[in-house]
Amino acid sequence: MGALMNYFRSQHVQHAFAEVRANDLLRFLKARGIEVTAETRERIESCKDMDVLGTWLDRAGTVSRAEELFADG
């Protein structure tokens, strides 16, 4: 069991989960008809922090522009 837990804590797996979350965020924005610039797409895809991606995903339901995801507060 310990080896399995270590696997899920590994940086490689965390980055894979972050990649999935980033893709989900981009899909959600697309489904809402929100345009995503190349710069914004790069920022989302390069983020590996699950908490930050989670915050952006929470905000994605209410923003009118993709850049609003990054607003402080």
Rank of each mutant, 00 (worst) to 15 (best):
E39S: 12
E39L: 06
E39M: 08
E39G: 04
T40A: 01
T40F: 00
T40I: 12
T40Q: 12
T40V: 14
R41D: 13
R41T: 10
R41I: 07
R41E: 15
R41C: 04
E42G: 09
E42F: 07
E42K: 14
E42I: 04
E42H: 13
E42V: 11
R43E: 12
R43N: 04
R43H: 03
R43D: 05
R43A: 12
R43I: 02
R43F: 03
I44D: 06
I44P: 01
I44H: 07
I44Y: 04
I44N: 04
I44V: 13
E45L: 15
E45K: 15
E45M: 15
E45S: 15
S46T: 15
S46I: 11
S46M: 14
S46P: 07
S46W: 13
S46H: 12
C47S: 12
C47I: 12
C47E: 15
C47T: 14
C47A: 10
K48T: 12
K48L: 01
K48E: 07
K48N: 13
K48A: 08
K48V: 11
K48W: 00
D49G: 03
D49E: 13
M50E: 11
M50R: 10
M50F: 07
M50K: 10
D51N: 01
D51F: 00
D51C: 00
D51Q: 00
D51S: 00
V52E: 08
V52I: 13
V52L: 09
V52F: 02
V52S: 10
V52H: 02
L53V: 06
L53H: 08
L53S: 10
L53M: 00
L53Q: 02
L53I: 02
L53E: 04
L53K: 09
G54M: 00
G54C: 00
G54L: 00
G54D: 07
T55P: 01
T55C: 03
T55H: 03
T55W: 00
T55I: 11
W56G: 04
W56K: 00
W56S: 03
W56T: 01
W56N: 01
W56Q: 01
W56P: 04
L57K: 04
L57H: 05
L57Q: 11
L57T: 10
D58R: 12
D58G: 06
D58V: 08
D58Y: 07
D58T: 11
R59D: 07
R59E: 07
R59N: 11
A60I: 07
A60L: 05
A60S: 13
A60N: 03
G61Q: 09
G61W: 10
G61P: 12
G61Y: 03
G61V: 03
T62R: 09
T62S: 11
T62F: 05
T62E: 05
T62L: 05
T62P: 03
T62C: 05
V63K: 14
V63Q: 02
V63D: 03
V63R: 12
V63M: 08
V63T: 07
V63W: 06
S64H: 09
S64P: 04
S64Q: 14
S64M: 12
S64I: 14
R65P: 08
R65T: 14
R65L: 15
R65V: 13
A66E: 05
A66T: 09
A66V: 10
A66I: 06
A66Y: 06
E67R: 02
E67F: 02
E68I: 06
E68A: 13
E68C: 10
